[in-house]
Design a protein around this nucleic acid. Structure first.
Lengths: 143, 143
DNA sequence: CTTGACATTCCAGCTTAGTGGAAGGTGTAC
DNA sequence: GTACACCTTCCACTAAGCTGGAATGTCAAG
């Protein structure tokens, strides 16, 4: 199978497939006499795995590590499990962060809605965004 | 005030201050006879605004636009309000996305916990991550 | 006179996951 | 023989927000 077919079937672009090879995520493909890459079904299986792992939110680097463990003959189960736990943690943290941001935004928005532009203070850029002092150091510069 | 002092007070590094100037977020600073940048309190006010706007999740580009509107003499209230609404939307979407990912992770993790490595299939990279077929095209390569 | 802390410019690199495009070789059909 | 699709390599570039470092200049103290 040539790279175009593999791309077609796998859903990865030919660019991406070459890129994956270049970063070692895919092994160097066998070449035909004319220099074209030649793939077997195992490439497709590997790409299926990459695709699965990506949709679990793993980075290419992490996926590469799993693949490396696997090809060293060890089952990567424990490593994968630890990765998943770590990801759950970091996603949890990101969600919390975004929710904080969301409530900050909500408060700014409701302030903006109760706000008349006429009351803008010329001494600052934006009364809506400058409502809260965000550091002691800045305090005296935010009236 | 020299750049080091401004950095100290504002909490932005000197690198960052020069960077902000280079991208037009801060105006070109006045120079002393020796070529050193010389700042007044208005720089501090502008940085306070930037800091506030950043903590509202706005990008430097968006902050720059607000500053540009402001310096064109128009009050940026409406623009800021629209930006905040748009951000609320996109944060909402991001949270939803992360929550989907989180439930996906949770299901993979609980599968992993009920899983014995002995049952690993040698034909695939990882039974945990390969549990769900993620595309029809891949179906026949994931047993 | 030298040391040290500051300042200047400019160029490079980081992160991630690719994409775009140029210049050229290959293979098949008309 | 020429069009056209496909393949090759390589280099540059994207977003965002900086950070590091080199080479050099300035200024005050001892």
């Amino acid at each position: 199978m040539k790279i175009g077919e593999l791309a077609e079937i796998s859903g990865f672009s030919t660019k991406t497939l070459r890129f994956y090879e270049s970063i070692g995520l895919m092994p160097a493909a066998n070449r035909e006499a004319n220099g074209y890459r030649s793939y077997q079904d195992d490439s497709l299986r590997r790409l299926a795995f990459i695709s699965n792992a990506q949709s679990a939110g793993l980075s290419l680097k992490e996926i590469g590590e799993i693949l490396a463990i696997r090809s060293s003959g060890v089952t990567p189960c424990e490593h994968v499990y630890q990765l998943l736990l770590a990801h759950r943690e970091s996603i949890e943290a990101k969600i919390a962060e975004l929710e904080d941001l969301q409530s900050e935004l909500a408060s700014l928005i409701s302030y903006a809605e109760s706000f008349s532009p006429e009351s803008c203070d010329d001494g600052q850029v934006c009364s809506i965004l400058s409502r809260k002092p965000n550091s002691v150091k800045f305090a005296k510069f935010q009236h």
